[in-house]
Design a protein around this nucleic acid. Structure first.
Lengths: 200, 200
DNA sequence: CCACAAGATGACCGACTGGTCAACTTGATA
DNA sequence: TATCAAGTTGACCAGTCGGTCATCTTGTGG
């Protein structure tokens, strides 16, 4: 991780934010292959500055991705208050999918490994996803054999289709979402194969 | 495209097959970023030989991907004979997903553009997918508001989750498939948003 | 069995990558 | 305002990439 958040000089703090914003945009546009040079350029700083703030590219990715965990976790947290648990889960998938654009959630599993603060955010997201699923199940809105793991896998797939947007049909992923969600309903559910994924 | 299939010297023909096989494996392992050098190494030839057979990396990709179209088209063709149209569609998704591993089907849309023979294979795949959907709909096995485009989008998503395999849960994508397929059934289907995608 | 075209080779090229670092600039403190 | 650590810079490095090409090897028709 970067050195503790203590005492950043004002210009350094500003540059750090510029870099994170630039990285966000660049990763969204070019995927995880976006180059450090491009990010630096977009932020209006020299390449060396990137490495002063983030020791490696991996670390930069981890921080950006950590932000996504936090943001998704917040969304899930709000939706846990909803009076319509089933609708909340649907909303969660929709908001999360759109928010992540074509950012891959998986890499993030790997990249994140070993970073305690990012791991914590991830765990919170997992816990809240489980809670959303539990509530929807208790309300009888979704089948009882799916788990938070299933939902997150489905979210990854959904995010992927959001990334496949074309100009002609920018919303075809929403059709995919509805089909998926209909498949989550308890009525007429076929048994799911394989072992039930362990709780995250 | 490569020069017409006429009159390859025996060693050249052998090397071409070795290269295609190596490319298949390497693309499957490393994704589309697999390097030409690695493919050449795996095939046991020098890098220059790759470019003798395929003018650019794009062309090599197009040929490999074209093979997938053919193979998928063949699967769809066989399944069109099935007496259980709904089961055939499910089978198609399962087989296609597993066969493609984490090969992305989309790139292929782009890479393929402009290559007549590959385009032809793609069109055949599209046509057969539409036919599979039509048959399943006529049999009342799946909802009437989905189209071949929806199915191929879903297939892309499914392929993506196959690529997310972990050692612990190598088959979690099958749970995803079943959920999806339950969502395709006509009972209790929610209306799909947006314009119906045009026939491919 | 020979001649020669088709094919294979690998050093080489320029562009790009993540990452380093000595020299320079600047914000904050006393 | 003088000082100096904190921060910035961009040339530079080693490595990789797709792609080229002069040179060498080899399959094959006569």
């Amino acid at each position: 991780m970067t050195l503790s958040a203590r005492s950043l000089r004002s210009d350094a703090a500003r540059n750090r934010e510029l870099l994170l914003a630039a990285a966000e945009e660049e990763f969204a546009k070019r995927g995880m292959d976006a180059s450090i040079a491009a990010i630096a350029r977009r932020a209006g700083v020299a390449k060396g500055t990137v490495f002063r703030h983030f020791a490696t590219k991996e670390e930069l990715v981890a921080v950006v991705v950590g932000g996504h965990f936090v943001s998704l976790g917040a969304v899930a947290g709000e939706l846990l208050e909803s009076v319509d648990p089933t609708g909340a889960l649907l909303e969660f998938l929709a908001v999360a999918a759109e928010q992540l654009q074509h950012q891959d959630l998986v890499f993030l599993q790997a990249v994140t490994e070993g970073d305690s603060t990012v791991t914590e955010c991830r765990n919170q997201l997992h816990a809240r996803t489980n809670a959303l699923v539990d509530r929807a199940q208790e309300a009888g809105g979704i089948r009882s054999d799916v788990t938070g793991s299933d939902i997150l896998l489905i979210l990854c797939a959904l995010v992927h289709t959001v990334g496949l947007r074309t100009e002609q049909t920018p919303d075809s992923w929403r059709r995919h979402l509805i089909i998926l969600f209909d498949g989550l309903r308890p009525q007429g559910a076929s048994p799911l194969p394989g072992p039930v994924p362990e709780r995250l």
